[in-house]
Simulated assay, not measured.
Amino acid sequence: MKSGLRTWAVAARLAACCFVAGVGALAPTPARAQAGPMQSDTAPTAEVQPPAARAITLAPHITELIFAAGAGDKIVGTVSSSDFPAPAKAIPRVGDGMNANVEKTLALRPDVAIAWLPSGAAQTLAPTLSRMGIPLLYSRPRTLDDIPAEILRFGKLFATESTALPASKALQTRIAALRTRHIGSKPVSVFIEVGTSPLYTIGKDPLLNDALRLCGGVNIYTDTAIAAPQINAESVLVRRPEVIIAPTANGIRLNEVRNRWTALHLPAALNGHVYGIDPDAFFRPGPRLIGAVEALCSYLEQAR
């Protein structure tokens, strides 16, 4: 079940939702994935009188960002997929990314709720939160630089700037180092495999394409109209990527991906350029994405 939810989640996050991906029956239809943008990425923190003390997070990356800002102890409720860092596992659950229990949420007496977009769980809670005068904010990083910026934002919201500022600066430094290191690097074409049943990839997703550009990578499906297109193997063979990125930190799973593309005689696989990245780090727009991008850049360097 976790694999199926992850497959749906990555396509939904890339089309406009929030989690991480594998493959399964819950993957969205192409029609669902083509849904347009829903509203601005963030709501002004002025709606909340800082410091906020009791927060509900409705996406795992938001939980990670708030912990990075030093305010993890302010989260009183979250969704089932919030599993990092380790203390997040002990936070009471109010639902998953698609649904939330209104009664459980109100019982936790939040003074702010923070979501990815006004769909799913946020849409369920929004009318009640509005009636109760509880602000509903949004966090949707679109570039790598937005991630440290969000940490600072949450530091201000929860009055934990003393932790958020150095954490933000540390990530900014790492991003800047990658940008400097790979300026002028030879472009490398990349295929990011999201799942296999059916086969999804990364398309017009601003955040992950920003990550690829930082490394000198070029997404072979960046010209698609949606963020998580369903494709077929023949299309990948025609586009001939130089590198394949698989969403796995498991060696056995990575070998399966490598063997599958090798059997299809894809040059990237024949040349040994199939690499795995932890999907939780790579597909969640939180602090761990920076480490995943550092790994991505090193893989593209090997391919060069």
Rank of each mutant, 00 (worst) to 15 (best):
K2F: 05
G4M: 06
R6S: 14
R6K: 11
T7P: 06
W8C: 09
V10R: 12
A12E: 12
R13C: 11
R13K: 13
L14N: 13
L14D: 14
C17N: 10
C17R: 11
V20D: 08
G24Q: 11
A25Q: 15
A27E: 15
T29A: 11
A31W: 14
A33M: 13
Q39I: 04
Q39P: 06
T42V: 14
V48Q: 12
L58V: 03
L58T: 07
E64L: 03
E64G: 05
L65Y: 05
A68N: 06
A69M: 07
A71I: 03
A71F: 03
A71N: 11
G77H: 02
S81M: 02
S82Y: 01
F84P: 01
A86Q: 08
A88D: 05
D96G: 15
D96P: 15
G97R: 14
G97P: 04
N99D: 02
A100Y: 11
N101S: 15
V102F: 05
K104H: 07
T105F: 02
T105C: 12
V112M: 03
A113R: 13
A113G: 10
A113I: 05
P118Y: 11
Q123M: 12
T124D: 10
S130I: 02
R131K: 15
R142E: 13
L144R: 00
P148A: 10
P148K: 09
L152Q: 09
F154L: 02
F158Y: 12
T160A: 08
T160Q: 14
T160C: 08
E161W: 03
A164Q: 05
A164R: 01
L171D: 04
R174P: 00
I175Q: 04
L178Y: 01
L178F: 04
R179Q: 07
R179L: 07
R181L: 09
S185H: 15
S185D: 11
P187G: 11
P187K: 15
V190Y: 11
F191Y: 13
F191R: 01
F191C: 08
I192P: 01
E193L: 08
G195C: 09
T196P: 01
T196H: 14
P198D: 05
L199Y: 07
T201W: 01
G203R: 03
P206R: 13
P206N: 05
L207A: 06
L208A: 04
A211S: 15
A211P: 07
R213H: 06
L214F: 03
L214R: 04
G216R: 07
I220R: 06
I220C: 06
D223Y: 02
T224P: 03
I226K: 03
A227R: 02
Q230I: 07
N232D: 10
N232A: 09
A233F: 09
V236Y: 10
V236G: 10
L237G: 10
R239P: 05
R240Y: 02
P241G: 04
P241I: 02
V243A: 08
V243C: 02
P247V: 06
G251R: 09
R253A: 13
N255L: 12
V257F: 11
R258V: 01
R258G: 04
N259K: 11
A268T: 04
A268P: 04
A269I: 06
H273K: 11
D278H: 00
P279D: 04
A281E: 00
F283A: 05
F283W: 08
R284V: 00
R284S: 00
L289I: 00
C297M: 01
C297E: 00
L300P: 14
E301K: 15
A303W: 12
R304E: 15
